[in-house]
Each structure stands twice: as structure tokens, then as C-alpha cells.
Amino acid sequence: MSNVTPDRVSLFVTCVVDQFYPEVGEATTAILRKLGIDVEFIESQTCCGQPAFNTGYWKEARPLALKFLDEYGEKPYIVMPSGSCASMVKVFYEELFQNDAETLRRVHDIGPKVYELSEFLADVIGVNNLPASNKSGRKVTYHEACHLRRELGAVTQARSLINTVPGMDIVEMEQAEVCCGFGGTFAVKYPEISGAMLQDKIDNIRDSEADTVVACDSTCLMHIAGGLEKQNVPVECVHLAQLLDEAIE
């Protein structure tokens, strides 16, 4: 845990939030402000480059990575409502620039300054109690985003934040740590495999009898919500930022 509480962070909303879920970016901003932290939004930001990188198009990913490094390189705290985009910067930029020593130095420099939202709240700010309540009486289950868990190693943060809200206790689903089958272009390259993985996730959500699925990545939620919607399962998918923003007084 850091000794200094930052008074200002730079927000990277991610392209998916920008285009499809702006309310997640707004909730992120709102929580940070409620905690007394000033939020900066760099308007030139776009995408970290992950979609291209994951599909093998590293030439297309590199200019976006460089753009990110230019925009955020000097910022002391960079917060993202996505474990996957944070992993891209913290873990995968290293692969992308493995033959470029100079950029690699910048990558190593920026890595420790990038935080996924739940990590930032739990580990940097040290949020352990919140003036909050479970206003909507949600019955919450938590889906672990893969990159958050396995690239960033953040398993406890989001769960402890949720459980911090008085009156809100996670109803664990079976196989919460198993991938929902999204995987970027994997979902359209292998729709049958991805769809079968999604079905397991939907079944586990149903069996948990929760009415709300929470995760720290809008892409997982896009996939899960899309599946639930397709099958008319009345379970709401919300990002951790939205859940906390709604709960905090």
C-alpha cells in the first residue's frame, strides 16, 4: 500500500467504455471524486492496442501503444476500469516492444503507475469502509475477469470492495474464475467454442440465484450480458464502478 494518497489521477476509460458504456467511465470518475480525488481525462486517448495485439497484428498495435506512452508517460497515477487494458500496458507492451530497447524502458517506467480500478481503490487508496448501502437490495455475484486475475494477480480487491458495502455480500457462483469465453476476436473466430463457454457461465450465474453480475471489465460484461439478454435471463450486468457509485452515499 502506498504511503501517499494521490490527489489526482489520469483516467484511461478504454475504447469499449468510450463507445459503448460511457456510464462506466462516469461512475469511475464519480467514485474517485467522492473519495476526494481529482480526475483528469486526456481527450486524445483512444485505445491501448489490445484487439490488434491479441489477434497477431502487432504492427497495428504498436502506434497505439506509443500513443498511449506519449499521452500517459509522465502521469503519476493512471487508472483504468479494465483489468484487460491495464494488463496490456503492464504486461503485454513488453512483448510488443521486446526488440526496441528505448521504448521498452518507457514501458517499464509506466507499468507501476498503471492501476486497474479495483486495485487502485483497494491497494492504493486502501478503501476498507465506505459510506454506502445496498440501496437497490442487489443480490450480487462476482465474475473474475481473466486478465485481472491471472496477468495482474488481483483476486481479492474487487471482492473486498463489494463486501465493504453494508448489506451487500457476494453470492459466489460456481467457477467464478473460469473465462466467460470472450477473448476478443476469439469470440467471433470460434463462436461455437466461445458460445459453449458462455453457456457454462450463464448456467453458473443462474444457479447462484443472484440478480446482478459484477465484473471489473466491460468486455466480459458485454459478452455475459449479451448472452443473458439473448436467452432472456433477467440478471443485470454491472461494472464494479457502477455498483460502487450506486452504493456510495
Partner: peptide, 13 residues
């Protein structure tokens, strides 16, 4: 085939 897709909205920016 397996999921609905969210529509584009007025962006965060």
C-alpha cells in the same frame, strides 16, 4: 448467434 451486441452510443469523450 450467441449474444446480443450493445449499440454504439454518444461516446464518453
Amino acid at each position: 448467434r450467441y449474444r446480443t451486441f450493445p449499440r454504439l452510443v454518444k461516446p464518453f469523450r
